[in-house]
Computed example of a mutant assay.
Amino acid sequence: MNIVRSRDYTAARAWDALALAVMRDATVRLHWTDQPYPWHVNDGEEVFAVLDGEVAMHYRENGRELVAQLRAGDIFYAAEGDAHSAHPLGQARILVVERAGSA
């Protein structure tokens, strides 16, 4: 058993992660960041839950770039192949569940 207080988590650099669990083929990680993450496409599904802070989630849909403002408690789902880029507004802590081995 393990209890993690996400608001207390910080990292040495943006997007460092605390590995919380590996469950079958998925990883669960707590990320801390204050910098944007580059545009990328995952090789599997991703669940991105904002625990603390705000994130402007840029994503592409039908050839258009859109932005969703995510606040604490909001969850973003990206299917395999969905291009997206997270831009925190200040510091943010994010829980990410994705295929094991994804970057």
Rank of each mutant, 00 (worst) to 15 (best):
residue 101 G to H: 03
residue 29 R to Q: 08
residue 13 R to H: 15
residue 22 V to P: 02
residue 56 A to R: 02
residue 26 A to P: 00
residue 43 D to S: 09
residue 73 G to C: 13
residue 22 V to C: 08
residue 19 A to S: 15
residue 32 W to I: 07
residue 45 E to Q: 07
residue 70 L to E: 03
residue 17 A to S: 15
residue 31 H to S: 04
residue 26 A to Y: 12
residue 12 A to H: 11
residue 36 P to R: 06
residue 11 A to N: 08
residue 93 R to C: 10
residue 102 S to C: 04
residue 62 N to A: 14
residue 68 A to V: 04
residue 53 G to Y: 09
residue 8 D to H: 06
residue 94 I to M: 07
residue 81 G to E: 04
residue 21 A to Q: 11
residue 71 R to T: 10
residue 52 D to H: 14
residue 79 A to F: 01
residue 99 R to A: 11
residue 41 V to T: 13
residue 65 E to A: 01
residue 36 P to S: 08
residue 36 P to I: 13
residue 81 G to T: 09
residue 52 D to G: 10
residue 101 G to P: 01
residue 40 H to T: 01
residue 7 R to K: 12
residue 45 E to R: 03
residue 18 L to R: 14
residue 10 T to A: 12
residue 57 M to L: 14
residue 39 W to K: 10
residue 101 G to L: 06
residue 21 A to I: 08
residue 95 L to K: 06
residue 101 G to T: 05
residue 73 G to M: 07
residue 64 R to E: 14
residue 20 L to V: 13
residue 56 A to Q: 01
residue 94 I to L: 05
residue 78 A to F: 04
residue 29 R to H: 08
residue 93 R to H: 12
residue 32 W to D: 07
residue 3 I to R: 13
residue 38 P to E: 09
residue 54 E to S: 10
residue 50 V to N: 07
residue 85 S to R: 15
residue 75 I to D: 04
residue 71 R to C: 10
residue 46 E to G: 04
residue 22 V to M: 06
residue 41 V to E: 11
residue 94 I to Q: 06
residue 79 A to H: 11
residue 41 V to I: 12
residue 64 R to P: 00
residue 9 Y to H: 15
residue 22 V to N: 13
residue 9 Y to E: 05
residue 14 A to T: 08
residue 91 Q to E: 15
residue 57 M to N: 03
residue 10 T to N: 13
residue 74 D to F: 01
residue 44 G to I: 08
residue 83 A to S: 09
residue 87 H to Q: 10
residue 4 V to K: 06
residue 74 D to H: 13
residue 17 A to P: 03
residue 1 M to G: 15
residue 16 D to P: 05
residue 24 R to G: 13
residue 6 S to C: 09
residue 89 L to N: 00
residue 42 N to E: 13
residue 80 E to Y: 00
residue 24 R to I: 01
residue 2 N to M: 14
residue 63 G to I: 09
residue 7 R to M: 09
residue 57 M to W: 05
residue 22 V to E: 15
residue 28 V to Y: 06
residue 80 E to D: 05
residue 100 A to E: 01
residue 103 A to V: 00
residue 52 D to V: 15
residue 25 D to V: 06
residue 35 Q to G: 04
residue 28 V to W: 00
residue 47 V to H: 14
residue 37 Y to Q: 06
residue 9 Y to F: 15
residue 16 D to Y: 12
residue 78 A to D: 05
residue 64 R to S: 09
residue 16 D to K: 07
residue 4 V to N: 10
residue 38 P to I: 02
residue 67 V to S: 01
residue 47 V to A: 15
residue 37 Y to R: 11
residue 18 L to C: 10
residue 10 T to F: 10
residue 88 P to Y: 02
residue 7 R to T: 13
residue 37 Y to G: 07
residue 11 A to E: 11
residue 72 A to T: 02
residue 65 E to V: 08
residue 45 E to F: 00
residue 99 R to K: 12
residue 5 R to P: 02
residue 36 P to C: 07
residue 31 H to G: 00
residue 36 P to L: 08
